[in-house]
Write a protein that binds this DNA or RNA. Structure first.
Lengths: 325, 325
DNA sequence: TCTGTTTGCACAAACGTTTGCTCAGCGGCG
DNA sequence: CGCCGCTGAGCAAACGTTTGTGCAAACAGA
């Protein structure tokens, strides 16, 4: 029983040319010995490791863990293994360098808080197929992002529909893709409701709960009756701050945010949010990557290296919003 | 320049036997060509992949993401790559089978919600060095667990010291290692404070926030003035329920729990918790594993395959606890 | 019966390392 | 002067696959 024949039989190659009896004998023996082809040897010979890497700046962030989940499922379904690596402080450079040298990876899904230019350089340095997620990378390759601008607009429109007129935006990191997109979404909805998107109604807290109290106080000083928070975490922190002032949510101030995570359900009041397909973002990124690695026609035409914007899901109505008094 | 010599020089082998000049020439060329030994070929030849696997039931759970972080750092520091895989529904069997056949892994760190017997069988089936974390596996190999019993006791003792006498325990999953440990910790502290650990003061909510309201109501019906929650998530949900009843926390009811996560800081009031070294749990598991894979004397004597219990950190005083009225 | 075609399988090289061995050159020692 | 032993480096086999090719045996057509 020669190795080559075994190899052909076990992978059911197109150039079969093997007798039924031989095939059966091989299959039986493989079964009996619990034989598994050594993936290392195969990868060495074929120069294909069927391994993908996802790099995230934080693993504990629900957006990224959801993206990892989605990516892992998609990769597995396609017969790939997904490695997870994380770059502390948001920088991707070190991780990319390290992993791409210690393990053989065919493509990388990258999430990073780096500046555009920095990130572009890190990516160029490893010279591997890649897809960036959770942002647009101008001039870069393909990206998969969440349409947080639309998500913001949905939340703000909800507040406006309830009758709120002074709706504050508790902004994320302004100057960055997602921070700006969310503020623009707020502006869009304000305008659509015939309200002026007064810059005074915007207070930046970034993604840091510790910066929330001051930002909320600033908004309160502007007389807002509702707050649209850029992230679930800062939204929750905003509610805590409001409680701290003895204010009732939603009685005195309504709060809406996005990302339908468990956190939205364990605080009081449960937070009204807009669903965002984080897991799908991971899955789509893997699909894009695989389309480049395996140019089969099974996926339809390969799109140009552009940004794929995933539309938000629906508004999940909970108890943090109500008409103004 | 022969490959064998290059190999010896680059890994700085003990059997150096190479002229300084040759060594320099090789090093220079490697640098110039940005040469990296192919990890696949090396792994194939040496039968050592320097890859570890960690299997967790959920990646979004802060305990596990912290453990992954700790494990990854430790693995990397030792020159290993850490693969992350997760088994939905808590079962480890499928993941172990799948990954151990698709990639070459030298050892596995396992977290799972499986029953002891089921888990033992899954592990036996893959026949690889392993360390179980976040629980004790009776009769199994080595484990690294958090001493949640002691952590519970610290939290409950804090409540007792404040003057609470009717302290309810919002239990995790009773009958399982961590659920039972936490309830025992509550009992320990109750007894130590001269209070009767009345079973009526225990209400089980598992790890599911949806079950919390009913459990909290049951505790309230028993006249508790303080609640010790088995998990941060159910603790937060308990606070939400208390608010829902129009009760003040900590004015009417104090709440304490464990795991010092971000969540504890974004709810109102910020939750008093007991620190638990989740990240260290991951790191220690990797160390244990490596000790078996590389029996060097650098780590002290290899311990018997017993459970390593990591003691809790300190009580983090926030605003969810106060003396009873 | 002979030639030509197909069928079924084995041979062997290659992937990029690691590692035991060989061996030429050379200096020292008897 | 001859032998020994050391140094420094190359040779070659091996790890477990994949894949192009070679080559018998079986078969068909003439």
């Amino acid at each position: 029983m020669d190795a080559s024949t075994v190899s052909r039989v076990l992978k059911n190659a197109a150039d079969v040319r093997v007798r039924q009896e031989t095939r059966a004998r091989i299959l039986e023996a493989a079964e009996r010995l619990n034989y598994r082809a050594n993936p290392l040897a195969r990868a060495l010979k074929t120069a294909r490791s069927r391994t993908l890497l996802i790099v995230v700046p934080q693993i504990e962030n629900p957006v990224f863990s959801a993206a990892i989940l989605g990516a892992e499922e998609e990769a597995r379904a396609r017969g790939y293994v997904l490695l997870v690596a994380y770059g502390r402080e948001g920088s991707a450079a070190g991780v990319l360098e390290r992993v791409s040298q210690s393990s053989l990876v065919e493509g990388v899904v990258i999430a990073s808080f780096d500046e555009d230019e920095t990130l572009r350089q890190s990516i160029a340095a490893i010279g591997q197929p890649h897809v960036v997620i959770n942002r647009r990378l101008t001039g870069g390759g393909s990206c998969v992002a969440l349409d947080t601008r639309a998500a913001s607009a949905i939340g703000v429109a909800h507040l406006a529909a309830l009758g709120h007129r002074r709706i504050g935006h508790l902004a994320g990191r302004l100057g960055r893709f997602n921070g700006d997109a969310r503020r623009r979404g707020w502006e869009d909805a304000m305008r659509a409701a015939g309200l002026a998107p007064d810059p005074d109604l915007v207070a930046e807290a970034g993604y840091d709960p510790a910066r929330v109290p001051a930002a909320v106080d600033a908004l309160l000083a502007r007389g807002v009756t509702a707050i649209h928070a850029a992230t679930l975490l800062t939204g929750a922190a905003a509610i805590a701050r409001l409680h701290g002032h003895g204010l009732d949510v939603p009685g005195d101030v309504s709060v809406v945010t996005m990302h339908d995570d468990l956190l939205a359900r364990v605080v009081y009041p449960a937070i009204t949010t807009v669903e965002l397909p984080s897991a799908e973002m991971g899955a789509r990124a893997v699909r894009l990557l695989l389309r480049r690695l395996e140019p089969g026609a099974d996926d339809g035409p390969a799109e140009a290296s552009e940004t794929l914007m995933l539309p938000p899901g629906k508004l999940v109505l909970r108890e943090s919003t109500s008409p103004p008094r």
